[in-house]
Amino acid sequence: MNFSVSEAVFLLLAFATVFSASLVIAARNPINSAMALVATFFFLAAIYAQLLAHTIAVLQILVYAGAIMVLFLFVIMLLSLTDLGAPGPRVTFHRVVGGAAAFGLFVALVLALLRWHANPVTGRPGSGLRFGTLEAVGGLLYTRWLLPFEAVSLLLLVAMVGAVVVAKPRV
């Protein structure tokens, strides 16, 4: 088997992503989970860049690895979960069923993927080199997708107010 450089890079990033994502699930301490999640976001941003989605890769690091993870870490430290509590039974009926359901979903998705074949790339005229750049994404965002964009700004405002109200001790 001989790999091209892109394939080798992809394999490396894919293994790193899956490994750190598994650490998120496996770590006992939520802080370790959060740190593994930051690593996952960075590896995913690299994969996005490999897919020529440069703008989304930068946003992934800014918003996910930056803003959202800071929020997570703040909450973990605010709750000061020093005592993780009694571990409880490790294997319960609920957990076995949950694990089997996740595995079954994966098998179903793989079977679906095996039956699917990518279309040959046609490529719209004019998309070429601008694909995935801030210019191309921004151009679409402020013309055809302006209404959803404004709706998202409203959603963020509602979320901001809602978060303050919900977290307040007494309303």
């Binding site: 897919l51 989605a53 989304i56 990518a118 790339v121 046609t122 998309s127 995935g132 965002l141």
Partner: peptide
């Protein structure tokens, strides 16, 4: 989006 060379997929991700 990469497969179909369509930027709309990037907006969905955004």
């Amino acid at each position: 989006a990469r497969d179909r060379l369509d930027d709309a997929g990037h907006l969905a991700a955004l």
